[in-house]
């Protein structure tokens, strides 16, 4: 049985309730919208979408709400000869979809369905001379892709692969650290909470968190909370539910998640729920989508919201799964 959050937060009685059953139905219904062009215009994100949906369902305590066999069968078809996964059948492999596929398969304990060594070959082939990783074979580089690569290799227990130079990866990520303590997508790039998450996550997995000034970055992250309780990604930007995850998980890795006002953030996330359709939007009053749904729910789980399965702040997967595969807790 999945471990629920051990320490739960006292939730403000006047905050809206978590519409757990409606969110389950919302996610189950996502795959029935094939008559909408919108569904197909996002087909390159299908594998990511499955990760978001299945992870949200696991945290909601409904791990069987999607047909596992069908998903595994589908993912197998998305793997290419070079080992990487495309975002959908017939799409070129990319590190983003490769990580999502591996995360889903590990969550379902079905890594046996794919060729793991080939995934490692693929990821190793994406490392650049400077230690960073490209997202695919045509070279776009971003700290997001570094995290995807390191996260995936860590989940597969293949960080010791001889082809990798992890010291260079650490050095590169450290070069992306800014004067405000945050991190950007490349050296010199503006600090952004999502880029902070991927950089802090990479350094956490690689045991190199000592390169971060946790107090300075912890304060910068805390500064992301606005008066309405929501979090933004950069100074003077609007609050958005997905930053509940990027900011909070980073603070959690730095052991400083208690620095923000949890009850206010919980209320903000709950107010962004769509009471008619289920699902969570970027902010109250907007249309929900699966991306904001999973990061809202994962944020609530990190905040200790009662009744939710505990989530791991580094891998954004159920904590019991991370424990099952024996990854040492580094956070």
């Amino acid at each position: 049985m999945s471990a629920l959050n051990e320490e739960t937060t006292v939730v403000d009685a006047s905050a809206p309730e978590l519409l757990l059953d409606q969110h389950v139905k919302y996610i189950q219904a996502l795959d029935t919208k094939k008559n909408d062009l919108e569904y197909w215009l996002t087909e390159h994100l299908r594998v990511n979408g499955l990760y978001w949906g299945s992870t949200a369902l696991h945290i909601l305590g409904h791990p069987d709400a999607l047909d596992q066999e069908q998903i595994v069968e589908y993912l197998v078809k998305c793997q290419h000869d070079n080992g990487g996964f495309g975002g959908h059948i017939d799409h070129d492999p990319h590190i983003l979809s490769t990580l999502s596929a591996v995360q889903i398969l590990i969550t379902y304990d079905r890594l046996d369905a794919i060729q793991v060594d080939k995934v490692v070959d693929y990821i190793a082939s994406l490392q650049n001379e400077d230690g960073s990783f490209s997202g695919d074979s045509w070279g776009e580089t971003d700290t997001r892709f570094i995290f995807c690569a390191i996260n995936c290799l860590s989940l597969l227990k293949k960080l010791d692969d001889k082809r990798l130079d992890l010291q260079k990866t650490i050095d590169y990520v450290v070069r992306c650290r800014n004067f405000d303590g945050g991190f950007g997508s490349s050296p010199g790039g503006e600090s952004h909470a999502a880029q902070v998450y991927v950089c802090v996550g990479t350094l956490t997995i690689l045991g190199a968190l000592h390169h971060v000034d946790a107090d300075q970055l912890g304060w910068w992250l805390s500064e992301r909370q606005l008066k309405n309780g929501g979090l933004n990604g950069r100074p003077e930007k609007l609050e958005d539910v997905c930053y509940s995850w990027w900011v909070l998980s980073s603070l959690s890795m730095l052991n400083r998640s208690h620095w923000i006002d949890a009850p206010k953030l919980i209320r903000f996330i709950l107010e962004a729920q769509d009471t008619e359709t289920g699902g969570i939007a970027d902010r109250p009053g907007n249309m929900p989508d699966v991306f904001h749904t999973v990061f809202g729910i994962a944020g609530l789980s990190l905040l200790g919201y009662p009744g939710l399965v505990a989530v791991d702040p580094v891998y954004c997967m159920p904590r019991h799964v991370i424990q099952r595969i024996g990854l040492v807790e580094k956070h």
Binding site: K34, N35, Q70, E73, Y74, K77, D90
Partner: peptide
């Protein structure tokens, strides 16, 4: 045509022009 396999999780009813 799109290869959805024998048991499509994501079948084929999208707009003609796109497909």
């Amino acid at each position: 045509p799109q290869d959805d396999g024998p048991n499509p999780l994501v079948p084929i009813a999208y707009t003609q022009e796109y497909s």
